[in-house]
Design a protein around this nucleic acid. Structure first.
Lengths: 197, 197
DNA sequence: GTCTATAGTAGGATAGAC
DNA sequence: GTCTATCCTACTATAGAC
């Protein structure tokens, strides 16, 4: 298989997935027809189906991108030195997401989709777990550095508290998508104030 | 308009809405066809459409029921004497919801629907606001009784903290729906531990 | 690989008898 | 008010030319 062709194929897939994301952002997953994605991509039905076998495959591709980027962001954050306080995690996660997506709407739609679609649900579940894991490690490391805890004790604290940080992000997504005059800045400040230090 | 007819009409609407809820619980909103709702209700298409003009109207009816019951529960809770501590609110809300719905899945689907459907979004937004308001009043009252705060100070604290309690519930709904082996009991214990007292 | 045109199908809604 | 039968729209996916 020649190298140029493979690169071209990947580029096309990316191009199509980007167009799909733009369309989904406007109208959601099921409200968006293949015709709209096709039009957004500036291609034709045949061209799209040559790269993705179905609309669901396209949804999965887009979802995987969003999600993998998010987890990578956190993992990257855990490598920083000095480490920001864990209470700053929700803000960083939320801001990264908005930078990439424009709005958290798509995330909420994805969750709704996951309820009835086992494939999407498996993906979403793995994300929540990966996010909790990486946040837990982050908290553990922070506790050891900042408060001199032993690694066992710090790990336990990280496992326990990680759920709180993840919850803060999830609730931000819900409220930012649903409440028209949601004050994200105020929400984040309150969470930072009450989350453990 | 004779009284008997009106009562009958309401009873039928309730019957249909209940059947729709059962169907939605299994497969979600859009994955459920009118045929399934019709079958679940043991009626026919004509009978259903005589009471609800469209599938969307049926979704709205079901959503309104779920949501109004939830808000009423909190309002009722606020009248109790002695008042349970505010940190117990998420557990009570979650348990009430599960008693009524079986699982929080439908709630998450509703949120997903809200992203693209303005009518549903308006409903969901009003619920979040009503919930925050009633929880805020609850916290305020609790702070005055338990810690002797002045009403202005207590109100401010209630407004600030209410978002935390609502967030705990929202995140429970997300995780319980998405993560197969989600440990709700452990989640609630952790939230209760860290939520303000 | 990509296009146009279309096949195939599912599901929401309605018409008209009773 | 309710039932049966059916229409019609909208969508995904494919077939075949270039």
């Amino acid at each position: 298989m020649p190298k140029v062709t493979e690169e071209y194929r990947v580029a096309r897939r990316t191009e199509i997935a980007d167009a799909a994301l733009r369309a989904f952002r406007r109208k959601g997953f099921h409200a968006t027809s293949m015709a709209e994605i096709i039009s957004e991509a500036g291609l034709s039905a045949g061209a799209i189906y040559g790269h993705f076998p179905s609309k669901e495959a396209l949804v999965m591709e887009v979802a995987t991108r969003i999600i993998d980027t998010r987890v990578a962001d956190v993992e990257h954050l855990a490598e920083l030195d000095p480490m920001p306080a864990p209470s700053a995690l929700p803000r960083m996660l939320v801001e990264g997401m908005q930078r990439e997506l424009g709005s958290p709407n798509v995330m909420l739609q994805l969750w709704g989709e996951a309820v009835t679609d086992p494939t999407v649900r498996a993906l979403a579940a793995s994300v929540v777990n990966r996010l909790r894991a990486v946040v837990g490690r982050y908290v553990s490391r922070w506790q050891q550095r900042e408060h001199g805890l032993g690694s066992d004790e710090a790990d336990a604290l990280g496992a326990e508290q990680s759920v709180l940080f993840v919850a803060a992000v999830q609730s931000y997504i819900v409220q930012a998508s649903l409440v028209p005059d949601f004050d994200g800045e105020s929400y984040l400040r309150t969470q930072e104030k009450y989350l453990p230090h």
